[in-house]
């Protein structure tokens, strides 16, 4: 990877971090409502894996902590922020919200609130790919908590049985909402849980984007070429709460501090500084430019966009356009 791409990746991770921090501010200012699940600490996972996929062509789906997966898939940050502000210009026209981002134009298929719900959807995208032919793949990002749902086991079985091209990415951040993994799950190494289904799997550090990309490249290649599922477990940590209403009582300050030392942006920045790819001054200039862009373009666009019209509230319950055959 050349220096230009390395700087771009550092910028993408930093943009993700600043974007999420700005969301938290907007939430406190009550410009964003509902539930808000932020991604700081886990940036290397979504960005590292999708760097090795064909975004815009491969299908991507995830749970409710979905902002950065959407951005890396190619969603316009303005459309994302406008959605969080509940505006008509939002990626889901203000009908979805933080947990329900969609952009089928870049094949980002959502944003779902029910834990484990997207497993079968991802397998379904792969089923359509299989029927159509072609070399696209389906990529499903979910947390470790989702693996205790029935859909995990049911979908692993069918995806393997039917050779569906799905890459399952498990972002293992050690907690299912506020319950530690060893208190909820017998086998804490998630990649071992797919072995009975005959699915190849690996576990790696999710904080070092170079490690993530190396594993993701192999995983993507496996799915794309062998037309079979693969399961990649990334060991990561969220530095903020589960959502904005998290007391934090379930984990120690020491533990959070320990993981903060392994901040994916910190790790990658240090590597690029040591290699002379970027300087401290360049990094600060990059950070300032990002924050200016988020404030002056992204947030401003969201704030100034119009609300959906109440008259349109019943639109989209059913599809429109007279395509029903009995109306022909």
């Amino acid at each position: 990877m050349d220096a230009t791409d390395q700087k771009r990746l550092l910028r993408e991770m930093l943009f993700a971090r600043r974007f999420e921090e700005r969301c938290a501010e907007a939430y406190h200012e009550r410009q964003i409502g509902g539930f808000l699940h932020l991604y700081p600490g886990e940036e290397a996972c979504a960005i590292g894996v999708l760097e090795k996929a064909r975004t815009g062509s491969d299908y991507v789906v995830t749970g409710y902590r979905d902002h950065i997966h959407a951005l890396k898939s190619g969603m316009n940050p303005k459309a994302l922020m406008a959605e969080l502000f509940g505006k008509e210009a939002g990626c889901s026209k203000g009908r979805g919200g933080s947990m329900h981002l969609f952009d089928p134009d870049v094949r980002f298929m959502g944003g779902y609130a029910l834990v484990g719900g997207p497993f079968p959807l991802a397998a379904g995208f792969a089923k359509t790919i299989q029927l159509r032919g072609g070399d696209e793949i389906s990529i499903c990002f979910l947390g470790d908590g989702a693996n205790n749902q029935g859909t995990f086991h049911e979908t692993m079985n069918m995806a393997s049985l039917w050779n569906l091209p799905v890459l399952f990415v498990c972002e293992n951040n050690l907690y299912g909402i506020g319950t530690a993994i060893e208190r909820s799950t017998v086998e804490i190494n998630q990649y071992k849980r797919v072995a009975p289904y005959g699915i190849e799997a690996a576990q790696c550090d999710g904080q070092d984007i170079d490690v993530v990309m190396a594993h993701a490249e192999k995983a993507v290649q496996h799915v794309r070429e062998k037309r079979k599922p693969y399961f990649l477990e990334l060991m990561t940590y969220r530095l903020r709460g589960h959502s904005m209403s998290d007391s934090g009582a379930y984990r120690s300050k020491e533990e959070v501090e320990e993981w903060a030392q392994r901040d994916p942006i910190g790790i990658y920045k240090r590597r690029l500084l040591d290699a002379g790819v970027v300087s401290e001054d360049e990094f600060h200039a990059m950070d300032k430019a990002i924050q200016d862009e988020i404030e002056n373009e992204v947030v401003r666009f969201a704030a100034e966009s119009p609300e959906p019209r109440v008259e349109d509230i019943a639109r989209y319950v059913y599809t429109e356009g007279g395509k029903q055959p009995w109306l022909k």
Partner: peptide
């Protein structure tokens, strides 16, 4: 022929429908 996994094979159908099948 599906395994006896109603929720997930329904979900596979839903996912397939969302992308054109």
């Amino acid at each position: 022929d599906t395994p006896i996994s109603e929720n997930s094979y329904t979900g596979i159908g839903v996912g397939a429908a969302m992308v054109g099948a």
